[in-house]
Design a protein around this nucleic acid. Structure first.
Lengths: 127, 127
DNA sequence: GCCCTGTTTCGATAGATGTCTATGTTGAAG
DNA sequence: CTTCAACATAGACATCTATCGAAACAGGGC
């Protein structure tokens, strides 16, 4: 509500009350519809490649939750391949990118991480 | 007596009982190694197909956490294809199967779900 | 024995995917 | 303006994947 923003006061983690739960209920809640399955599968598939997973982990674990390509591109494949995988992660909504001067920085979209985590919850403890 | 019946025979491939393989730390903790990435990517990849995701969700949300194939095979593909996808999910360690009489029942491996969920946690708050 | 429920196998095929090399594009620095 | 460095894009290629139909196989109930 009014947020009471007397001062900036950055919250620990943006509440994102619903900001990014556009996808689906927990997998255990009810059988997924075709649409839900396609949406969710796109995200899982993005993390279903070892190189992408390493890139994602490198960004996610980097200081400040962001990293420039030059910091993470040592994953054993050529530079264009790195670029290609980063693009895939971006298309899946898992990463965002921003150019600052010569370098391009990638950042994790935390709300999407949370949404995927919610998919995998055992039981929402609700009826 | 004969061969190995005196004791429990040797566990060629121990069912890994539970263990559930907490394969990896959270993605945000540190950059994944190649091995970790390959292990984790195998699980994500298994859920990266819409049909498999629907099958998995159907089992996971079914009463008792298990379902027979006849209950979930209405996903728009042929019956051998359903069988093929269920096999993939089993190979990924996400499902187990058991025959009871005429029907085969699939069940979710809850510990694996938990392990995947842990991968996606933002910050483990230490131990 | 016959039938039912699944599993497996066998091509076969259309499409997706990961990788590379080569070439652009963008911005900073001479 | 030229050149270099950091990434992105484009095209080519080989491999993998999902799917099908049909048919054989395996347990279990009758």
């Amino acid at each position: 509500m009014s947020n009471t923003s007397t001062t900036k006061a950055l919250p620990l983690i943006e509440p994102a009350s619903d900001a990014a739960a556009p996808c689906c209920p927990p997998l255990t809640e009810r059988p997924f519809t075709t649409e839900e399955a396609e949406t969710a599968a796109r995200m899982f598939k993005a993390l279903g490649d070892p190189v992408r997973l390493r890139l994602f982990s490198a960004v996610a674990s980097h200081e400040g939750g962001e990293a420039c390509v030059c910091d993470i591109s040592d994953v054993g494949v050529s530079q264009p391949t790195v670029s290609h995988h980063l693009k895939k992660l971006k298309e899946a909504g898992l990463l965002t990118s921003e150019r600052r001067g010569t370098w391009v920085y990638y950042r994790v979209e935390p709300s999407v991480l949370a949404a995927m985590g919610r998919l995998l919850t055992i039981a929402p403890a609700v009826t």
